[in-house]
Structures are given as C-alpha cells and as structure tokens.
Design a protein around this nucleic acid. Structure first.
Lengths: 198, 198
DNA sequence: CATCCTATGGTACAATGTACGAGTCAAGTG
DNA sequence: CACTTGACTCGTACATTGTACCATAGGATG
C-alpha cells in the first residue's frame, strides 16, 4: 500500500500500473493478484489509507465547536491535497472505514455544535459537497496552471469583459476562498454563538 | 461530437473508445485523428458541447437577481447531470468557451445582485466549488447506490452510531440538499434584500 | 510420505491509443 | 491535357495495459 501511494504521488492516477507496482516491490506482477482482486481494489485501499485520521491532541474540555468543525474540514482537505490524486477519486469509489469515520466524527461534532438532528444530514452533505468541490478543483487546477493562463488569454477573444477584468482565472488564493465560503456555509447551519454545550 | 456524447452517455468515460467511435461513424479509426489530435481533445470538445447554455427567455426587466443566480446554477448542475460523465471531467480539463461563458454570466449576475467587485472572485469560486462538489458527488453516487447501501451496512461493524442512526448514506434528497446549502452560501455573499438595481 | 493451504510468478491474450505511411479524390495551375 | 497540391481516409503495426490460466514451491498437518 505504501509503495502504491508513492507511485500515485509521483505519477497521478496514470502512474500506478500493476507492473510498475510489482517491479517496485521486487515481485512478479501476478503475485499482486493473490492479495488483491483488482486494480480497482488497490485504488480503494490507497484512498482509504490516505484518509486516515489521527485524532488531534484531545483538549477534551473544548469550548469552541465551530473551531473544531473548521479544523476537521481543513484537515480533511489538507490530507487530500497532500495526495492530489485522491480527491477526484473519492466520490466515485466505495467509502472506506476511514472516510466513514470522518463522517461520523463530523456528525457528532455538528450535533454538539447545536445542529438539530433533522438538519444533520443536510448539513453534512452540504459541507461534503463544498469540501469536495474545492479540493477536487484545487488538486486538478494545480497541475494545469498553464491551462488557466491559456484560458485567461483566450478570454480576450470571447465576450467576457467581467471575468477578464477581475482576472478570475489567475486568482489563486485557494485557501482564502475555501475558508470564506466555508464560513458562510457554517453561518447557515450553525449560527454563531448558538453552540450548545451538553 | 454528437455520437461521441452518445457513447459517453451510454457507457461513461470508459464507454468512449476511438475504435468504438469510428465504428459508429462508419469510418476507419485513424481517420478520426485527422480531425482531432488526441482522445483527450475529444473529451474536451464533448465536455464543452454539453455545457452549452441557451440563454433563458429573457424577461429583460427582471427583478429578482437572487432567483436568476439560483436558476443559473441549477441549470448548470442539471446540464451536467444529464451527462453524468461530464461533472467529474470538468475540473481536470481545459476550460472551453461555453464554461467560460457561464462564468462570465455568473460574474455579471452576481455583480448586479450587489456583490462588490472585491468579493466577486471569492463568491464565484465558492459557488463553483459547491456546485461542482454537489454535482460530482451526485453523478458518481448515482451509479453506485449499491455501494451506499453496502457502506451503510458496514457501519454496523464500525463505531459510527450517529450516522448509522441518521441513515446518512441512504438519504437521497439530493436536490433538497443542494438547494439548502446553496441558499446559505448565497445568504453570505448576497444578503437577502440587499440587491442593487442599476 | 501424502495432502492441503498459502503464496509466487511466467506465459498468453484481448483491448486500447496512436505513429507511420500509403492511398483517394477534387480543385487548381501550367 | 498532365501536374501538383491539399484535404481527407484508413490499414498495418506496435507498445502498454489489466488480468485469466496454470504450474510451481514450501511449510504445516495427517
């Protein structure tokens, strides 16, 4: 698994081949198939491995649930960005135990933060959507900054004065954008100061 | 292009092969390469074709900018869901004219709705993130509802009482969730009743 | 010794993207 | 008319991939 992740980090989704993996492990290709059904399974396992979550130092008597949620989501995002192939993979693959664990933690934290049970699923999925969208976009555009510049150029040919002027495609304060939209979402689900300590 | 999209609709990303496309067109495989550099280009073109936007019936003297934005984003999402392979592709591919056009329209509409120039890029990217996350997730999970059920089952084995109880993974009010989170985001960027008519 | 389970890995095959180069046909040019 | 040129088609060939099938080896157990 570790070497699979190495290959993925080095060459993206296309960088992982069964032959390549076997070579790096000094084994025959077909030996891999004793441990693993498919190449698909390798992806599933690598993905879940990358999403492992080390519980933070547990300042148990915490106060600020809002901060906890933000930390949770930013750590999730950071984990995926450390392995840029992972984010685009996540929605299309089976949910492994680690991501399920994160969802559970998220659910509990939101609950403690004062989100009513009835709104919990909506809140979780909305946050999921936002985090996944931001991370997939970031992870993909990262590799193709040339594309962005090219597209910004191409704007001159089209009738797109507004986004050309604002240099939308060259804006790369990814973290700031992420945090800003996240705040607005959270304001909706967990009105500031409404946290319930129980 | 039309038949390429047919193939993609029928079999997803894997359903498009150069040989398959050529067969459907009654041509030789290599003939395709006179019109197109790569298979990659085929994806780029198909993707942009799917994102074409027919301006709505133009009730010019509109009033509710908020409604316009929601319409804009829901139409975008609907366009991608009509071709489930498109959403996961979009972030990783070059931005074609149609998607750039949509961004421009979005920018203009947000501006009219009262978003300050300084906040424009942040707003656009946040909305992009949210829409893309929601759509990619929806488009991918759609195909694998079995996976979801399986994962929900697997929860019993883990320690995940909260999301097991709330049946998070079986909740499938996708449209409701989308709309709900979107409203909160918009509340942040375009406070209700703050629309400026100019 | 025989039997079985765990594990390895070589060979072979089908599917894919595409490089190369030969071919067709119509329009233009002398 | 012969010719060139440029747009376009396509057969062959090859490298790369995932993986099915099968033979093998070693240790544990009877």
């Amino acid at each position: 698994m570790a070497t699979a992740i190495e290959l993925l980090d080095a060459g993206g989704t296309a960088g992982l081949t069964m032959r390549g993996l076997a070579d790096r492990l000094g084994s025959g290709v077909m030996s891999l198939y004793w441990h693993v059904d498919n190449k698909e399974k390798v992806f599933d396992l690598a993905l879940d491995a990358v999403l492992a979550y080390r519980e933070p130092p547990q300042h148990v008597e915490a106060h600020d649930w809002r901060k906890d949620i933000v930390h949770l989501l930013e750590d999730w995002r950071a984990s995926m960005l450390r392995h840029p192939w992972s984010a685009p993979l996540l929605p299309s693959r089976a949910l492994g135990p680690n991501i399920l664990g994160r969802l559970e933690l998220m659910s509990r934290t939101l609950s403690k933060a004062g989100v009513a049970d009835a709104d919990l699923n909506v809140a979780i999925w909305s946050l999921w959507n936002y985090v996944m969208g931001a991370t997939i976009t970031r992870a993909s555009f990262d590799r193709s900054e040339d594309d962005m510049a090219a597209a910004q150029q191409r704007l001159t040919g089209l009738v797109a004065p507004t986004i050309e002027r604002s240099r939308l495609l060259l804006d790369n304060d990814w973290d700031g954008v992420f945090r800003n939209g996240l705040d607005f979402l959270l304001d909706g689900f967990v009105p500031r100061g409404a946290a319930v300590t129980r």
